[in-house]
Simulated scan of single mutants.
Amino acid sequence: MAYAGFSVISYSASDAKVTLLLRTGSGYAATTISLRWNGGDWKLLPSSQGSLHTPVTLAQGPRGHILWEA
């Protein structure tokens, strides 16, 4: 798997929720991360269970995501 792009689900001055698009051998998958602005930078915000991201799920494709150049 390789990171292919992202989309911003929600954003404020202190918090953001972002979907990361992953390219797999058979298509695309996605996971969501939560971020918090702290100390002048965005930092991952673990869930209450300690996870850094949601479970990875299949994605229909890159539509709706900003793609990173390879």
Rank of each mutant, 00 (worst) to 15 (best):
M1D: 08
A2E: 13
Y3G: 13
A4D: 05
A4N: 03
A4Q: 05
A4G: 02
A4R: 11
A4E: 08
G5N: 08
G5Y: 09
G5P: 06
S7W: 01
S7A: 14
S7I: 03
S7R: 15
I9F: 00
Y11I: 09
Y11F: 13
S12T: 14
S12D: 09
S12P: 02
S14E: 15
S14I: 05
D15M: 08
D15P: 00
A16E: 13
A16G: 14
K17D: 10
K17M: 14
V18K: 14
V18G: 13
T19I: 09
L21W: 11
L21G: 10
L22S: 07
L22H: 09
R23D: 05
T24K: 07
T24L: 06
T24M: 08
G25V: 09
G25M: 07
S26T: 13
S26C: 04
G27P: 02
Y28D: 00
Y28E: 00
Y28F: 12
A29F: 04
A29D: 06
A30K: 10
A30Q: 10
T31I: 08
T31H: 08
T32L: 03
T32I: 05
T32Q: 12
I33C: 02
S34A: 10
L35G: 01
L35S: 00
R36N: 07
W37K: 04
G39H: 07
G39F: 12
G39M: 09
G40S: 05
G40N: 06
D41L: 05
D41V: 07
W42N: 02
K43S: 11
L44K: 05
L44Q: 04
L45H: 00
P46S: 01
P46V: 01
S47R: 04
S48R: 13
S48K: 11
Q49M: 06
Q49F: 07
G50Y: 03
G50T: 02
S51D: 14
S51M: 04
L52Q: 00
H53K: 10
T54K: 06
T54M: 09
P55M: 09
P55C: 05
V56W: 04
V56T: 12
V56G: 02
T57S: 11
T57E: 11
T57W: 01
A59S: 13
Q60N: 11
Q60C: 02
Q60W: 01
G61T: 14
G61W: 14
P62Q: 08
P62A: 15
R63C: 05
H65L: 01
L67W: 01
W68M: 09
W68A: 10
E69R: 06
A70Q: 04
A70F: 01
